[in-house]
Structure formats: structure tokens, C-alpha cells
Design a binder for these strands. Sequence first.
DNA 1: CCTGGATCTGACAACGTTGTCCAGGCTCTA
DNA 2: TAGAGCCTGGACAACGTTGTCAGATCCAGG
Lengths: 370, 370
Amino acid sequence: MDRRIPMDRRIPVDDRTGRRIVPETIRRSDRAPENRYGNRPTMKDVAARAGVGLKTVSRVVNGEPGVTPETERRVQEAIDALGFRRNDSARVLRKGRTASIGLVLEDLADPFYGPLSRAVEEVARAHGALLINGSSAEDPDREQELALALCARRVDGLVIIPAGDDHRYMEPELKAGVATVFVDRPAGKIDADCVLSDNFGGARDGVAHLIAHGHRRIGFVGDMPRIHTAAERLRGYRAAMEDAGIPVEDSWMSLGVTDPERVRRAAEEMLSGPSPVTAIFAGNNRVTVTVIRVLAERTRPVALVGFDDIELADLLQPGVTVVAQDAAALGRTAAERLFRQLDGTLVTPERIELPTRLITRGSGELPPAD
Amino acid sequence: MDRRIPMDRRIPVDDRTGRRIVPETIRRSDRAPENRYGNRPTMKDVAARAGVGLKTVSRVVNGEPGVTPETERRVQEAIDALGFRRNDSARVLRKGRTASIGLVLEDLADPFYGPLSRAVEEVARAHGALLINGSSAEDPDREQELALALCARRVDGLVIIPAGDDHRYMEPELKAGVATVFVDRPAGKIDADCVLSDNFGGARDGVAHLIAHGHRRIGFVGDMPRIHTAAERLRGYRAAMEDAGIPVEDSWMSLGVTDPERVRRAAEEMLSGPSPVTAIFAGNNRVTVTVIRVLAERTRPVALVGFDDIELADLLQPGVTVVAQDAAALGRTAAERLFRQLDGTLVTPERIELPTRLITRGSGELPPAD
DNA sequence: CCTGGATCTGACAACGTTGTCCAGGCTCTA
DNA sequence: TAGAGCCTGGACAACGTTGTCAGATCCAGG
């Protein structure tokens, strides 16, 4: 066996100075110095300027031990002089954790999601993670596209407010270890963590509240039953009516109509039909607002309970009685579960339901005006 | 000069076998083959399974030409079988553009920022970019921390709603080519793109509106003048008063008080002092809400104009007259300018002011009740 | 049968960071 | 003063992708 060290394996040495030649460095310097992030200096540049090795710079940047104060000072100086900022993209590639989580919202312009999103962000921040988000605009395809784009970014986890009802597209991702929590609405066709409001119980209590105040002809204005929350609230309405032994007439229900103009018409119809309702249960905040407008134009008082709280509800005449969800708690709970999945503390998917709260302000306590 | 190659610089050789030791490679192969993103397959894995080269997979994934349909089918099959998803982190590192922009908000729970943020997201989406965001919670340090963290992620650009008034920390980033637009409030101490509402003009018009309805003793409840928007609105108030030749009394102004309880006290004081105001101009949406509450408890009617529109303002008694900003337009304009910076279409920083709109609903048209 | 092009394919080197491991200098003890 | 053990610093190979470039393969035309 040949034990000689082949010549060409030796470190190349400059003939004149005797200094070792590090070919990479030399080649790099005579290329156009433009690198792609504008013109960001890299650790290599910092190292060259400080006259230290690459890894030493890395150590300083990451506060790792094993660097003399003097060296550290030199490196820090070079960092400041060059305006160096570590490239987290590269870091992520190397480390495998991105320290970021994704949030797939339904619509940020809906005031319900502001506090929810804010709560998720706070939890993420507490765990040192950034939040990447996007809105599905209630479109299942867009939800999927967004969720998968976030997975391609290798977010550590995903909080999803579902627009669709089939989430099998997430299966490979779940298998690959992407922590995932569905919030506000459950996941469809897969087994995953969900954090929901008690939509059924909340609606049932709200309607029962109206019944307790003497109403029997109670209208329900809700969203498409395809949406889980809408279906549950409808179920709550039916349950409360059934518990009270009141048969529900079809003309008292409006389902799946959401744009204000048509909600308005639906409400007006149930108020003036052959057996007009004396109270309305509104299935979500946007419907509630429209119904308030309709009722404001009428003289006969009609009782109203809305699902979701709305700002200024207490200042209206009468104040609006609502079944309030705690949007912030939903977001917080979901995000916390997500990080517990990442810890490994949490393994089995669960469905968590947070209670709702009936807030009486007047509109729900009006007696029936027959 | 010593021209010898030091022995210890030679490639290490195993004493017994004489073979060169390549430590990394050898060690790696007997390490667990688990890679870090859970266990994601890479292009290499796909290539191996499809029996093609790495680059061919890349070509298929990116829809590049030059792949036989048959090869493409094989690759696609392998991709599906393995559940491969391209790692955008690595892609970003290679390509230099992240196709993501950052948004530094003040507070997502504030309803004003929902539509703004949503508008930014829509524009980003139209340009194929993701949105990474975070809230500064009105804390300048947190704003800086967040903005720099986003830069470290190498976002292509940044939309910032400033909390602080010194943005020199962004200088190296701007120099490095990070597109940046400040929105709602201007950048401090640096020259950068800003998209603002016409806070001065809006406030002046709002106050002039009150004056036109006969008011002379008009209160101003605003935020800290350190905040640009607050300062401008105060300036608008003063200008309108001066234009009308009305000297302003100190007791009519509350500046920098923001928590509801203290706003309430401030409002009550200016309503019951020695020269009580007959109208109030509220400097932002949160103040407006609190003032509405105070006025609702009083019998003497007091006129009110608020800056920022609030939901349901039309349903209160009386309807609340406001100076409305177009939050969505602010966001859209800012984001569009950002992408034009990235295009290279836009070079010189500019300050853009969007007009506000006075919406009369009743509260601002009440006559003075002396 | 060879040549010349047009396809298609794959090796290889980046991108900027971090983990591993070794070298060289130092201090401390025997 | 040697040997053992620390401390500091640096070389090098990943991470998973894409750009470059050159090698295969094929077919038509001479």
C-alpha cells in the first residue's frame, strides 16, 4: 500500500510569500462582487475584514463561547462597519428549524379574526417564532394553496382557520412532522387538533334565552350549513326549540345567505310573513349588523340575540344581547397547542371546545310584541 | 522564509492502513439517516427513486423544458409516491429572492389595521409573494427588533407602520436594497417612501365642520403628540380654530391620554370646567368610542366628530360624524409602491398623502347647547 | 458510415450558514 | 521540563436547491 502523501494533496503555497493559498477566497474576489441580496456582506466578508476565520464570526454572531474578548471586539467592529446581518435563510437550511409558524386566516378584515391573529402572534413571539400569514378569502382552493406554500417554506407549524371541509392534502405534511392546529372550524376528513367555540351550546343558550323571555316564533338567520360553525349554530337553534316543544316553521329560517342585501330581504320576510317572528337569532357578526339595521327601521320591537360580540353593541338602543366567543382565547389556545406539539409534549389529536358567554344588553330581553 | 509544508498540515492518514481519513464522509454514513425537516424527501430521493439525475427532478418541479414526457411521468410518480415538496428555504438561498414581504403592524387587534393588512396581503399575493407580519404593540424597540428580524429572513421588502420616530436602524438595509415603505406614519430621520392619510387636512375639516355648525368651545382629545398622526391632527385642530379666530383654551385639550378610564375623565373635565366645551373632536377611533360612552351618559347634547370611521357608527343615536381614512387604500398604495421599488420602476422616495372623507351622520351637526 | 445538429440528461459548483473535528498555544502539575 | 489538559481559532463538509456546462443519444443528410 502506498503510504506517501500525494503531492497534489498538499496545501498549495504561494512561491514568493510562502503563505498558504486558499483558492476559493481568491477566486471569489475577482468575480463581480455583486451577490444577490442587494449587496449584503456575508460572514466570509466579516471574517476577512476582521482577519479571523469564518467560524469565529459565526461564534460571535451566535454568542457561542470560545472567543477572546479582543477577537470578539474585532469581529463586532467588522460587523458594524459592514452592516452585516446574518442570513436566516441559510441558517434555516442548515439548522432545519425555521422558527416560524404559518397562519391561514379566513379574512383579516373581519373584526373577529384580528384578536385571534394577534393572540397567535403573541404566543409565537413568546416562543421566538415569526408568523407568516395569508387569507383564504373563504375559498377552499386558496386555503390549500396557501397552506402548502407555507409548508414549502418549511414553517415549523401551521394554524389553519379552514375554509374547506377536506384537509387530506395536509396528510403528507402531518406525516412529515408539521405541527398543525385547526381553529374556529374543525379539520375535514383527517385526524387533527382542533380548537373550537361551543357553537352548538352557545346558540342553544341564546335561543333558550329568547324562549325564556316569552318568545315562540323565533327566526334564525345563518350562514351555509356546509360551514361547520353555521351547521352547529343551526343545530343549537333547533335543539333549543325542540327542548321547548316549539315546532320550527321553514319560513323562520334563512340559511346560506350572506351578502347584506339578501340578508336584509330574508329578515324582512320572516318579520312580515303569515306567522311573523317576534325574535331573531343572528348566526354571526355580519348578519347581526345587518339585522340590527333592519330592525332599526321598524317600529314594532323585535328581540335579537346575535352570535359573536360586536363593538359598540352596548351603545345601541337597545343594547345588543350576544353570544360572545373569545377570539383571543381561541387563537392563544391553538397556538399553545401547536408549540406543545413541537415540544413533543402533545401527541394525540384532540378537539377542544371553548365555552361561549351570553351577554345580555337589552335586545334579547324584549318581550314578544304580537 | 520557511517553505516547508508543516507535517501537521498533511491529510491525516490512518497509521495502520495508511489510507487517508476523510472524517466527515465516513462518519456521516453510519449516522442515522434522519434529516431534519421531520423526514422530508429531497430531490435527491426523488431522483433516486425515479432513476434520473437530480437536475432532471428540478426541471420537472419547475416546469422547465427539456424533459421527455416519459421521464417527466416517472419523476412525477416518484414525487407523488414520496410526498415530496420542494424546500423553498433552499431555493431562496440559491435564488436570492424570497418572494416574501414583511409587514410590521402596530396592533392587529385594532380594527383600523385589519383592512390595511388585508390590502397589503392582496397586493403581495398578486405579485406571488407571501406576507410575514408581526405587531410592534406601539413599542419602538419591538418595531426595530421585528423589522430587523424580517430583514434577516431576507424579505424582499418591508411595509412598516412605525411605532418609533427614529428609523436610522434601517439604513444598512435600505442600502442593501430592501424595498421599504412606511405607512400611516412617516419614517423618522431617514429618507424613505411614506404613504399617509391627510391627517392635518382631515382634522382641520372636521373641526371646521363643527365651527360651521356654530360651535366655538371645541375640545380635542388626542394621542401623544410624539406620534406623527396625533401631532398632525392636533395641528389641524389648531389651524381650524385659528382660521375662525377662536383662541384655544388649554382646558379644552387632552393630549397623550389613551387608556379608556383616563380618556373618560379628561372628557368629563372639559365638559364641566369653567368654560365647558359644546363639541368634541376625538383624535382616533379608540378615543371616539370612549367619548361616545361619556356623552351617552349625559343629558346635555354635545356635538362630536371622530377621526377614523367606526363600525355601526350610523346606528347610534345620533349617528357619529367622522373623518374617515381609507385603511385599505393606505395598505394597497404602500404595497404597490413597494413592488414598484422592487421592479426598479420607483427610485426616489416620496411622501404620499391620501385624502380623508368627512361622513356626516348627525353627531357633528348638533347645534351648540350653551 | 460518418458528421452535425438538436435534444435530453446529469455532474458539479455555488448560495451562506452551522456542526465537527483538529491544530497550536497556553497553563498547570508532577 | 515533559505531559496532560484546557482554550481559541480555522478548515471543511454538510443543508437542498438551481445555473452552467458538457456528455450522451438520436436522427437526418452527406
